[in-house]
Design a protein around this nucleic acid. Structure first.
Length: 491
RNA sequence: CGGGGUGUAGCGCAGUCCGGUAGCGCACCUGGUUUGGGACCAGGGGGUCGCAGGUUCGAAUCCUGCUACCCCGACCA
């Protein structure tokens, strides 16, 4: 028993930490707050990137790359933006080291102080809008639809692998439009792209909504988000899309000449998802045996494990396994045949379960005699003996079913954990005993939201897009509210 | 930045109170037996006990200072 996981019931957050490390997704690095994403974890991220990148291209966006460093002065141009990020910026002040003649080693050369400090990007709005100023002159240059895949740094006090690290990987889309309506449409389009990705690839149901003013992105007029529910009943913001209005256009003087010959400021959006999605993926589906990966994001979809007494039995098993592997690969399934003699079958079973491989095939001498093979599903842990014939076709369908099953399971959980309440006592009770999303009327004031947060640590996760306007009573203040919002404790 | 905790082999830990030749489990290496749910036996390698001072014949252990990391709070995708 080399790798024991803490169970979810024992300690959910320990379970998460154990799992990320033991499934070889990532580990802490020598640099405080920064993680090393290991090959298996990175392979999942690459699958996420590929799926998202395609969706961005399909909606007309192009990739580009902007600098890691941002001149400090750029930050001060948009007031609320600075305020939002100032407290968590890493700053480059010098550009050279020199030998320390006194104590040995190296020291920062005091003569190399920068005229203007450089901020390591916590997000790229400022550097991008200072660039867009030169790219945009006419309505003919619009819309400008750019995405970048990059790393960013936000100097966090407390970090957790994937969920919150000082450096993380993400994509940030930055678009410019000639009309407000077009920019609003783009904002909405992209939040729906995220929701579609979360549901169809990650098999993670999300609620699309609008953020309250408190939770809004620094510098945005409106922030839309996808919110997911983790198995411990805490919410996790999985992606955001911002309508930036003309704030950045005005701050960086980005104007264009309209068809009518008038000089106007452009309208902007930005949107992003990060490696935090990896954390969401882990917490949405996995169990006490390890990861449960949706087939569409699993680096290995099927693993084949041979079982034999004596190495002389291996060649016969190899022949059948290689054939099945090829049949599957011809159908676009990624397969690993693990015939290492250095580990025993039982060890391999446990290992691939830990790593969330959706389907496992085991092939032994009995199967060779009978023309059968043992198939185990990771999501349900069911085992079946099946004929080898047409196993590839069966698996192709099964992968699809597993993808759906994982989603349905997560959806049922989510639906069972949205609790409508109408009194403050009920609110606190549900929050402490059940968790999940709490649906309640809100009077629309930041004051109420802040007080609720202070008392319970729950925040307004979002105002769901599909909520109908109605009249109700605010759960906390008793004042009239126009719509129901979702409260939750969040990551 | 407050409050708590821990630094001993790659990982997880015991030993520290009461100073006397550094240990256990896992992992690793060699050989053999094994292989349908994390194999077993035998042998083997690996440590300036976080760092720097001090006390002592002798320090992982006692004293002083420093440092790193983890957990809980204030901030955040």
């Amino acid at each position: 028993m080399a790798k024991e996981l803490t169970t979810r019931a024992e300690n959910y957050s320990q379970w998460y930490n154990d799992l990320v490390i033991k499934a070889d997704l990532a580990e802490n690095s020598a640099v405080r707050g920064c993680m090393v994403i290991k090959p298996y974890g990175y392979a999942i991220w690459e699958k996420m990137q590929a799926a998202l990148d395609k969706k961005f291209k399909d909606t007309g966006h192009s990739n580009a790359y902007f600098p890691l460093f941002i001149p400090k002065s750029f930050f001060s141009k948009e007031a609320s933006h600075v305020e939002g990020f100032a407290k968590e910026c890493a700053v480059v002040t010098h550009y050279r080291l020199k030998n320390d003649t006194v104590n040995g080693g190296v020291i920062v050369d005091p003569d190399s102080k920068l005229e203007e400090e450089l901020i390591i990007r916590p997000t790229s709005e400022t550097i991008i809008w200072s660039t867009y100023k030169n790219w945009i002159q006419s309505y003919r240059d619009l819309p400008l639809l750019i995405n970048q895949w990059a790393n960013v740094v936000r100097w966090e006090m407390r970090t957790r692998l994937f969920l919150r690290t000082a450096e993380f990987l993400w994509q940030e889309g930055h678009t410019a439009h000639s009309t407000m309506q077009e920019a609003v449409e783009e904002t909405m389009r992209m939040v729906h792209v995220y929701a579609d990705f979360a549901e169809n690839f990650m098999a993670m149901p999300v609620i699309i909504g609008r953020k309250s003013e408190n939770e809004r992105f620094a510098g945005a007029l409106d922030t839309y988000c996808i919110e997911a529910l983790m198995q411990d009943g805490k919410a996790l913001q999985a992606g955001t899309s911002h309508f930036l209005g003309q704030n950045f256009a005005k701050a960086f003087d980005v104007q264009f000449t309209s068809k009518e010959g008038k000089l106007e400021y452009v309208w902007a959006t930005s949107w992003g998802v990060s490696t935090r999605l990896m954390g969401a993926l882990v917490m949405a589906h996995s169990d006490d045996h390890g990861l449960v990966l949706p087939p569409k994001l699993a680096p290995i979809q099927v693993v084949i494990v041979p079982i034999y007494k004596g190495l002389d039995q291996l060649p016969g098993l190899n022949a059948v396994a290689e054939k099945i592997k090829k049949d599957l690969e011809d159908k676009g399934v990624s397969v690993k045949y693990d015939n290492r003699d250095t580990q025993k079958p039982g060890w391999k079973f446990a290992e691939y379960e830990l790593k969330g491989v959706p389907v496992r095939l085991a092939l032994g001498p009995r199967d060779l005699e009978n023309g059968t093979i043992e198939l185990a599903r990771r999501d349900t842990l069911e085992k079946k003996i099946l004929p080898q014939e047409k196993i590839a076709d069966y698996i192709v369908e099964l992968l699809d079913e597993i993808q759906k099953n994982i989603y349905t399971k997560a959806l049922n959980f989510r639906e069972n954990n949205i609790t409508p309440v109408s009194t403050w006592d009920e609110f606190k009770e549900v929050l402490d005993t059940k968790g999940g999303f709490i649906s309640a009327y809100w009077d629309g004031t930041a004051e109420t939201e802040v007080k609720i947060k202070e008392e319970t640590k729950a925040t307004i996760r979002c105002i769901p897009l599909d909520t109908e306007e109605n009249t109700g009573t605010d759960i906390f203040s008793g004042k009239p509210g126009k719509f129901k919002v979702l409260y939750a404790r969040a990551y």
